[in-house]
Design a protein around this nucleic acid. Sequence first.
RNA 1: GGCUCCAUGGUCAAGCGGUUAAGACAUCGCCCUUUCACGGCGGUAACUCGGGUUCGAUUCCCGAUGGAGUCACCA
Length: 471
Amino acid sequence: MVRTRFAPSPTGFLHVGGLRTALYAYLYAKKADGKFILRIEDTDLERTVPGAVELIYRTLNETGLKYDEGPDVGGDFGPYVQTQRKEIYAEYARKLIDSGDAYYCFCDKERLERIHNDGATKYDKHCLKMSREEAEKRIAAGEKYVIRQNIPEEGTTVYTDLVFGEISVDCSDLEDNILIKSDGYPTYNFANVIDDHLMGITHVIRGIEYLSSTPKYNLLYDALGWERPQYIHLQPIMRDAHQKLSKRHGDANYEDFIAKGYLKDAIVNYIALLGWSPKDNREKLSLAEMEQLFSLDGVSKSASIFDEAKMRWLNSQYIKELDGAEFHKRALPFYRQYDYLKGLDLEYLSSLLHSRTEIFTDVGKLTAFIASFDDFDTGLFVNAKWKTDAALAKKMLPDLIEVAEKEWDGLHDALNAYAERVGCKKGQALWIFRIALTNAASTPGGATEMANLFGKTESLRRLRYAYDKVK
RNA sequence: GGCUCCAUGGUCAAGCGGUUAAGACAUCGCCCUUUCACGGCGGUAACUCGGGUUCGAUUCCCGAUGGAGUCACCA
């Protein structure tokens, strides 16, 4: 049975890269009818942010990445929070010391710094020479210590990554990492091995930053007599060619995209495509479809740059699929941010905006013209195609106002009839009418649609105001 | 710098020794149209560079170049 896990540390928002890692781990498990597990890696007490764990739960649930086991849902391999597993790590660390695969180390920061300054590129195994008795005596005396992994000085360690293939590293390039910190908590280097084994994880799916330290973890599996899991490392999602997406640079995270009016399905769909593509190259995919289609040979070996323009487009595809009522419901909270929308027929507005909205925050830009009417720009009457200008507007507007006033019901036909009557192109009359009504070069709808949006009273007020300006 | 990994248009990406090198986004043009958008049609645009191997390399090998990751009592 395939078991994968997502193991974030609760240090803040779930960023897009982390979400994609979770997604792939989820998909890989689901494709194989396996289990997806959530584990919280909170051994760095300093960096743990209150509330971050809840945010992880919420985001995973919201996006549909349901985990079969985890801190808040239970499971047979708990606890699923590393700080609650402290004793477990201690026990295995002791085993490693017994077998000589780990050792106590008393070197302080100063000494570590000194050997570094003297040109050492890694820890010099200084404390390995100390006898077990002496080490225990010093510990009993209350001295601070850490436990380090004892890595062989020679040889090569090799493993096969399921996306990158064979990865081979010389032991001499590996450092004797700290397994247990002086505060008694394990480092990632140790905890991930213990937990992945104890939780029965068969496929470790994680960021590529671990690709080159994986040989160390494998040595630990070997020392403990455990079977090594399969590894799948993932290239990062970049913000540009050089930097990966990060909160530090203010790059948007999942929550921000939701706030901007992206649909969660579109976000999940888009990030899935950043580093993976299905055999048939389809781009619009639901989570359920991805669960069927996901495959490792579609996973990219190179990093991909996040392109919001494309995510916008994908989001627009999802928005178009919404029915009118659903679009309206989702647009409503965004309308409320704009006072000038008050009093308008918002349902009608939605019908106009639906095909023009890529992300919901677009409704602001799309309707901004409504509020800026008073600073009327008569230059907008100039249109080369229709051969209109302010002078023509001045001439035509009294008639157009009259048409609107007398034939409000059936305005569309009335305006056309008017154009025919006076012998001008209907586009001319309509252009002048729409500009007078909106004072905007482009609007989400034509002349009569804008009139419908404003209603008779406001439309007449606007037309008269425009005529006043051009007079 | 050492080590590890990666390399197809501006971006995401198909491709897995023989192709007119797909597709999508973006961009440009045309059509539709009462503006804009939607929709439809079309265009511009790529195999990082050298060596090999082979009848034949985008594809395999080596090297260079470029990029990324890593070298913490962070994960």
